[in-house]
Design a protein around this nucleic acid. Structure first.
Lengths: 209, 209, 209, 209
DNA sequence: CATGAATGAGGTTTCATTCAT
DNA sequence: AATGAATGAAACCTCATTCAT
């Protein structure tokens, strides 16, 4: 009708800017890699001009860090807690946990995020460190806790929870990288949910007293 | 001591040159990443001048491919076959296989190679494809074969070998990336051999009829 | 003589930029040759930095092509048509045409442009082709037309217009290359206007019935 | 049928080496241009190794100069003199001269040599100067002499020999460049002998008293 | 004489970052 | 706040030239 209807860049809630930029950038970084993505590409994808990005992020690396920070926390399922709490047995908790990870692997940026962290952590150690602290540092203990609880309840035999946890999440890492790295170059798609369920079967039997 | 000890690089081309360059490059690519490594760095690390590299490799990408090719094949344990053949039971084969992978993860370039493949496969899809075909395409079938054999022998219950194989190798992938990605940024070192053994325990019990 | 007089190159992009670059480049390419001219030289001559050139031309070759395109068209005397139209006789048209070419040889970039085309057409065949199509492809037919008209009018005897045309323009080519190639290395300057007039005399007599 | 029969590089008359190199180089310089020709290409074309060239020529430019020197002199028809001497009239001399040039344009390296000189004379002024002195400096005076003689004999009207000479050779220059520059990029081939003859007709009529 | 492996200076091009508007 | 023209450092790669054999 009037100018009102024109989506004016200068009028859009500017508080949302950083988030818009981050989303645009993750898409590109994940698809093309950090180095191969130009700041110009990010700007265009965010509907802004190159210079504007620098009003919100001091440099390209800061943008990468912001992405990891935001997405790692987002994926860091606040849901996890709820879902686990609702499980009646440790075996059920394990199944639900693996199903949740599988869902994230199949439906979120998690695989690409992981790939990004792996690829860039040498050049930007803080990235690796941050992901280690926030994402992994939160996940592994939860699994270890499930195991320990299962042992305490007599559901599982006495094994080392730290090692078992890695036995449990390893195949999910496998699935994530398969999706992010190998499927794009022609590997047969993997059914992550099925793998998670099958893996849970083996593990739960393997942990039985 | 004397001039004798000075290695003259203008000596006649040793057949070993390409291999020397590859080794020097893998170290740098793994430590600093492909893009962040300058051809000059590679040259210096190999004790040569920049131009000399180009006598053996047409460009930087070719060097990367050569590394993957050589190292993937090297790590592609010709030993695997022998070792597996010597196993009396499928369970033993599984243990030996995991121990072998663990050994490679702890003592060879495998983790760095893997990280390199993951990091560069988007920019250079042939790299990912090649690794998929050569390394992974050889490993997974072997594990699947062990499982299938175990089922046939009545050692294992009837499960899907393809899925079980991923349950088995997943934690080794976890270990490799832990070493290559997270230990360098401060994560606690992982005892891969122990993890492998522990994982084998769980899996073998989990597969029991 | 204050800061006012300092031209700020960070000013908003003037539409004239490409033209400024082209002019600067032609001077250098003609003086030093295409290969021997560094993009840095062009940039400095245009009062810009190296990178800026690439905002307007994708690469060095594109710059060369743009020069040829612009200058060939510029020299492609739109005037030719007018001037020829005003001639009462074919002989007069011939004289005027030769005088016009002579003027261009003495007062425009034509000789240097020609030299550039000759020098670079092997490495960049499109350059040669383009010049052939645009410059030469327009000039020769005009001359042939004058001849044909002269024959039709009975001013000239019946000869092959295509061959006669080459007899007519040849010495102008000679003059252009003399100026561009040999005068710079010490040859005695040539009076092109005089040569044109003298040549017209010979030709017109030579074509008389 | 002993080693004798084996063409041994090290045994071939080494006095001929420079000449062999020059011939190989001219072919390449003419076909690909001076800058685009690698010393390696020259070496291979001459059946030698790169280093060997440097035993005969101090650098690439020296090789270019040697080519111009040798070929300019070769084309500098010692024959010209004889042929001209045999002419009964100045008109006949003119015809013979033009026919000779046409022959050279069609059957020798002359066009490519000319193109080479034009292309390289700015970067290597001695080249241009040398060609000016030797080739052109010998040719033009001969033509001027024919004209002067014709005037003296009453065959031609009184015109300026220097200017007339340029009217005469111009179209041959045109033909040479047409062959070397424009035919390779798709121009219709020119019949040089025919042009020479036709041109001679026009000129001789044009010079008639 | 001849070789060819080795060198390293030098040029084009890219792109993160700056800054006048 | 936003723009986008301008910058210039940095990196790949080429190839004339050298020199140990």
């Amino acid at each position: 009708m009037t100018d009102q209807s024109v989506i004016n860049t200068r009028r859009r809630r500017p508080e949302a800017r950083p988030s818009e930029i981050i989303d645009a950038a993750l898409g590109l970084f994940a698809r093309k890699g950090f180095d191969a993505t130009r700041m110009d590409d990010v700007a265009r994808a965010a509907g802004l001009s190159k210079g504007t990005i620098y009003l919100y992020f001091p440099d390209k690396t800061a943008l990468l860090k912001a992405i990891i920070t935001k997405k790692a926390v987002e994926n860091l399922s606040s849901k996890t807690a709820d879902i686990l709490a609702s499980a009646q047995t440790s075996a059920e908790a394990l199944r639900k946990f693996l199903a949740l990870i599988a869902f994230n692997v199949e439906n979120t940026d998690l695989p690409n995020l992981l790939k990004l962290v792996i690829a860039e952590s040498r050049a930007h150690p803080e990235i690796g460190r941050f992901y280690l602290d926030s994402a992994i540092g939160h996940m592994l203990p939860k699994v270890e806790h499930i195991i320990a609880q299962g042992i305490a309840r007599g559901e599982f035999r006495a094994i080392a929870p730290a090692l078992a946890a890695r036995s449990i999440v390893g195949p999910m890492l496998f699935a994530a990288l398969w999706k992010a790295v190998f499927e794009p170059v022609g590997a047969a798609p993997i059914n992550v949910a099925e793998l998670a369920q099958h893996h849970a079967d083996i593990i739960i039997r393997g942990l039985a007293p």
